[in-house]
Design a protein around this nucleic acid. Structure first.
Lengths: 82, 82
DNA sequence: TGATATTTGTACGTATGTATT
DNA sequence: TAATACATACGTACAAATATC
């Protein structure tokens, strides 16, 4: 599940699969620092999950310090410390 | 809202109010280390909130390291480092 | 000025799975 | 065989702030 799709039946729950996919995109530079990652609605459409699940995936990245969320704006990739 | 009840209309959301109440109980010794705090169902009944909200309150304490959850057992007060 | 759309925040209810007691 | 308890997921609704027209 290296990219694009998740497996709803896999032992790893969808929210973690999505978090992992997004994490890979961040670390690969596909989502550069301070750029916005997909909105919750976009994640819902892309991965065909409920918004709750999409939000939870994002919260994993936020807890990990990989992204930061600006209310009413979006979620952005954390710029590395310099 | 020092104890017992929450205000669903207060600017501080219910899940944070509940977390704060539980935190006060822990820090006051009402819930000693390694004892179990109320179950999700008990929190639902006590504070009259949805289970999701009760879970969320507990997750705040868990993230803060104040409690630890044992799946299928319950959530317990973290013993202080010695 | 006003209306609309977008996006996140919060909360509700419900269902199923899994593990323990 | 229940009953208990947490984990995950679904869908839904409304609020608040922002952006856009």
């Amino acid at each position: 599940m290296a990219d694009g799709r998740i497996d709803p039946l896999a032992p790893t729950p969808p929210y973690r699969q999505i978090a992992e996919i997004l994490r890979l995109r961040i670390e690969s530079g596909q989502y550069p620092p301070d750029t916005r990652i997909p909105t919750e609605s976009e994640l819902v459409e892309t991965f065909e999950v409920a918004r709750t699940t999409a939000r939870r995936a994002v919260s994993v990245l936020r807890d990990a310090g990989l992204v930061y969320t600006v209310p009413q704006r979006g979620t952005y990739v954390t710029a590395p410390a310099r």
